[in-house]
Deep mutational scan, measured.
Amino acid sequence: PEDLERKVRELQKNGVSPEQIEKILRRDGVDEREVQELVKKVS
């Protein structure tokens, strides 16, 4: 979803590592495939 992507970009802009971003997304209940997609987009 659009807002998730925005969140991921925000986190990355704040210097959060892709690994941390993955953890955060998983903790928020984002589905694994979605997590991978989002992280791939920003890394």
Rank of each mutant, 00 (worst) to 15 (best):
K23Y: 00
E2Q: 13
E34G: 05
L25F: 00
Q20L: 08
E19G: 08
K41I: 13
E37H: 07
Q20T: 10
V39E: 03
K40S: 12
E19H: 08
S17V: 04
V39F: 00
G15K: 03
R9Y: 01
E22C: 12
E2K: 12
S17D: 07
D3P: 07
L38E: 03
G29D: 04
V42G: 06
R9E: 05
R27S: 14
L38K: 03
D31G: 09
D28E: 13
N14G: 09
K7W: 07
P1M: 14
V16N: 09
E34A: 13
L25H: 02
I24W: 00
R9N: 05
Q12C: 14
G29K: 01
N14S: 12
R9L: 04
R9S: 06
V35H: 01
Q12E: 08
N14P: 00
L4H: 05
D3C: 13
I24A: 04
D28N: 10
E5G: 06
E19N: 07
E22R: 05
E2I: 13
E32F: 08
E32M: 08
E2V: 13
L11S: 01
E10S: 06
V30S: 04
N14K: 13
E2R: 13
S43D: 09
I24Q: 07
I24L: 07
E2D: 12
D31E: 09
K41A: 12
I21H: 00
I21T: 01
K40Q: 12
K13S: 10
E22G: 03
E22K: 10
E10K: 05
E19Q: 10
K41D: 06
V39W: 00
V42T: 08
D3A: 12
L38G: 02
K13T: 07
R33W: 10
P18V: 14
E37A: 06
D28V: 09
L4V: 07
R27H: 12
E34S: 12
P18L: 15
Q12P: 01
K7H: 06
V16D: 02
Q20E: 15
D31V: 05
K41G: 11
L4F: 06
P18Q: 11
P1V: 13
S43Q: 13
E10C: 14
K23V: 13
V35M: 06
R27I: 10
S17Q: 06
D31K: 05
E32I: 09
E5S: 08
E37F: 01
V35G: 02
I21P: 01
E10D: 11
P18S: 10
E22A: 06
R6M: 12
P1F: 14
Q36T: 08
Q12M: 15
G15A: 03
E5Q: 09
K41Q: 11
L25E: 02
I21A: 02
Q20C: 14
P18E: 07
V30A: 08
Q20I: 10
K41V: 09
E19L: 03
D31T: 11
I21G: 01
R26G: 08
K7R: 13
L11Y: 04
K7P: 00
K13M: 11
K40L: 03
E2M: 12
R26I: 15
K40Y: 01
E22I: 11
I21F: 01
G29M: 04
K7L: 12
K23G: 12
R33V: 11
E5P: 05
S17Y: 03
E34C: 14
P1L: 14
L4N: 06
V16E: 05
E32G: 06
L4K: 03
E34F: 14
L38S: 04
S43A: 12
V16G: 03
D3H: 10
K13Q: 12
P1E: 11
D31N: 10
P18F: 14
S17F: 04
D28G: 08
D28W: 15
D3Q: 10
L4W: 11
G15T: 01
E2G: 13
G29R: 00
R33E: 11
L25V: 04
V39Y: 00
K41E: 07
L38A: 10
E37Y: 01
G29A: 02
Q20N: 11
K41L: 15
E34R: 14
G29C: 10
D28I: 14
V39R: 01
Q36G: 09
D28F: 10
E5T: 08
D28Y: 10
R27Y: 07
D31W: 03
L11P: 00
L11H: 02
K7Y: 10
L38P: 02
V39D: 03
E37V: 02
S17W: 03
Q20S: 07
L38D: 02
Q20Y: 05
S17H: 07
R26K: 11
D3S: 12
S43Y: 08
V42Q: 05
R9Q: 08
L4C: 06
E5M: 13
P1S: 13
R33M: 09
R33G: 10
I21V: 04
E22F: 01
E37W: 01
K7N: 03
E22V: 08
I21D: 01
L25A: 03
G15S: 03
L11A: 02
D31A: 09
E5L: 14
L38C: 08
L11M: 11
R33F: 09
K7V: 09
E5W: 07
Q20M: 12
L4S: 03
E37S: 05
I24M: 07
P1T: 12
L4M: 08
V30N: 05
K13E: 11
K13W: 04
E19K: 09
K23S: 13
E2C: 14
E22D: 04
E37K: 03
R6E: 11
R27V: 10
G15R: 02
V30P: 01
E22Q: 02
Q36F: 00
V16T: 08
V8F: 05
R6F: 08
D3E: 13
E19I: 08
R27P: 03
D3I: 09
R9M: 03
P18R: 14
Q12G: 06
V35Y: 06
L25D: 02
K40M: 04
E2S: 14
K7E: 04
S43M: 15
K40W: 01
V42C: 08
P18N: 12
R6Y: 07
L25T: 02
R26E: 07
R9T: 05
E5K: 09
R26M: 13
E32W: 09
E19T: 08
V42M: 09
Q12A: 15
I24N: 03
K23A: 14
L4Y: 07
V35W: 08
K23Q: 13
D28C: 15
N14D: 09
I21Q: 00
L25R: 02
R27C: 15
L25G: 02
E19S: 11
V8C: 07
V30K: 03
I21S: 01
K7G: 01
R9D: 04
E34P: 02
L4E: 01
K23R: 11
E10Y: 06
E34L: 15
V35N: 02
R33A: 13
V16W: 14
D31L: 06
G15P: 00
Q20K: 06
E19C: 10
S17N: 05
P1W: 15
G29N: 03
L4D: 01
V16K: 10
E10P: 00
V35E: 03
S43V: 13
L25K: 02
D3M: 12
V39G: 03
S43E: 11
R26F: 07
R33D: 11
V39I: 15
R27E: 15
V42R: 02
V39N: 03
V42L: 12
R33C: 10
D28K: 09
V8T: 02
Q36D: 09
P1A: 12
K23T: 11
V35D: 03
K41H: 10
S43F: 15
D3V: 09
Q12H: 15
R26S: 10
K41T: 08
E2F: 05
R9A: 09
P18K: 14
V39K: 02
D28H: 13
N14V: 08
D28A: 15
E32Y: 06
K13I: 08
P18W: 15
V30H: 12
L11E: 00
S43W: 06
E22W: 00
R27L: 11
E10A: 08
V8A: 04
N14M: 14
V35Q: 01
V16C: 12
K41R: 10
N14L: 14
Q20W: 08
Q12W: 15
R26D: 04
E22L: 07
D3R: 08
E19D: 11
E10W: 11
E32H: 05
E37M: 03
L38H: 05
R33T: 12
Q36A: 09
V35F: 07
E32K: 04
R6D: 09
V30Q: 04
E32L: 08
V16A: 13
V30M: 10
K41M: 14
E2A: 14
G15W: 01
P18T: 13
E10F: 07
E32P: 12
G15E: 02
K41Y: 01
V42A: 09
V30Y: 15
I21Y: 01
V8N: 00
V35L: 15
V39L: 14
V35K: 02
P1D: 11
R26C: 09
V42Y: 02
L38F: 01
P1N: 14
E10G: 05
R26T: 13
D31C: 07
G15L: 03
G15N: 05
E34Y: 14
E22S: 04
I24G: 02
